[in-house]
Each structure stands twice: as C-alpha cells, then as structure tokens.
Amino acid sequence: MPEDRVLVSPRYLAGAGIDRLADAIGPLVHLFGWPNEHDRASGRISVHSPDGSLFVNFNSRHTHGRWWSLAHHEPYWEARFTWQTPIEAIAAVTQALPQLLDDDRHVDRIPLTTTPPLAQIAELNHWHREDDTFTSPDGHCHLQHTPAEDTPWRFRHHVYDGFDTHWDASFTQDTPERLVA
C-alpha cells in the first residue's frame, strides 16, 4: 500500500507522525489484546501489558515534550521519546514489546531484531565513532552509549535550529539492548 512506504530517508529525518499513532499503539491493542485507556479531555493514551509489567504512555501535553514513555517493572527500565521522534522508530520499539514478554503469537508479522549489538550496527552503517558517541554519516543524528550512566543509551537528532527537527530518545539501565536496536 502506498501509505506504508517510507517517504523520508534516512528514517530519522521523518517527523513525529501524530496522525499515525495507531502504528505504535494499534498492534498492542488489536493483535495482542493489551488493555488501554484514552482520556479524551487531555489526549493521554495509556496501554499496558495483560500482566501489568509493562506500560506505554502517550501524552502530547507533557511539559518537556516527552510525548512517549515506556516503563517496565522488575527489572525496572524506561524508554522516553520526545515529540518529534519519528513514529516509525517508536512503532518499532512498541511492536517488539510483546516478544520481550514471551508472547510470540505474531512473530512472523512483527519480528524482533536478532541483529548484532547496537554499536556494531552503527559501525556497519558507517556511523563515525568517537569515544562513547556515534554520529550518523550526515552528522545530524548522535547515539551516545555510556554504560555506567543511569541512562546509557541516548539518541539526539537535529538538522537546523528552529525548524522542529530536534528529537531525543533515551533508554535507562536494564532496557534490553535488542529493544534499543
């Protein structure tokens, strides 16, 4: 279908895709039966795993522009995405969540990456590495990996100041690396 094509390359230049929220939340609700709540007054959407261990929240009124947060309990980890993060990236993360909870009913439709470690993926795609930071070939996207930090994985993107091209994605300790990938 034409609407399924990626129209922006590289993908990290795509926009937030507010009209495509269903790409990130829909599979959890419709394919996996995750309960959800939608507060129409605030626009907040919350989806949680059937066992209550994992939560996905969307809040377009978050004061710091962190529209998306995913939180897992035992072990605790959290992923946060700002409002301009490409919806394709968020959907890739949310759609992999059921498999992290050993629900492989739709593994043929939504495969979880089994690729090499993220640092190796960056190198294979010609990202430049300097100390703990990888930079995309065009210099607009940065991946910082500092394993000793509370938030060891941070993605930052910008093209030009003032054009709403900034976005951030961060993953705290204990976030499965294959989810970050």
Rank of each mutant, 00 (worst) to 15 (best):
T85E: 07
T85Q: 09
T85R: 13
P86Y: 12
P86R: 11
I87P: 01
I87L: 14
E88Y: 01
E88K: 00
E88N: 01
A89L: 13
I90H: 07
I90K: 09
I90M: 11
A91I: 13
A91W: 05
A92C: 00
V93T: 04
V93R: 07
T94S: 08
T94K: 03
T94M: 06
Q95Y: 00
Q95L: 01
Q95N: 14
A96N: 01
A96S: 07
L97C: 03
P98A: 12
P98H: 10
P98T: 15
Q99C: 03
L100R: 08
L101A: 02
L101R: 07
D102H: 12
D102P: 00
D102R: 10
D102C: 02
D102T: 01
D103P: 09
D104K: 15
D104M: 13
R105E: 04
R105D: 03
R105V: 02
H106V: 08
H106S: 05
H106D: 07
H106Q: 09
V107T: 11
V107E: 12
V107C: 11
R109S: 10
R109L: 13
R109N: 07
I110R: 14
P111C: 04
L112S: 05
L112A: 11
L112T: 10
T113M: 02
T113H: 08
T114E: 11
T115P: 01
T115D: 11
T115R: 14
P116D: 11
P116M: 15
P116G: 13
P117I: 11
L118T: 15
A119I: 04
A119S: 12
A119W: 02
Q120M: 11
Q120Y: 03
Q120S: 13
I121H: 10
I121F: 04
I121C: 07
I121T: 08
I121V: 12
A122M: 13
E123A: 12
E123N: 09
E123Y: 03
E123V: 08
L124R: 15
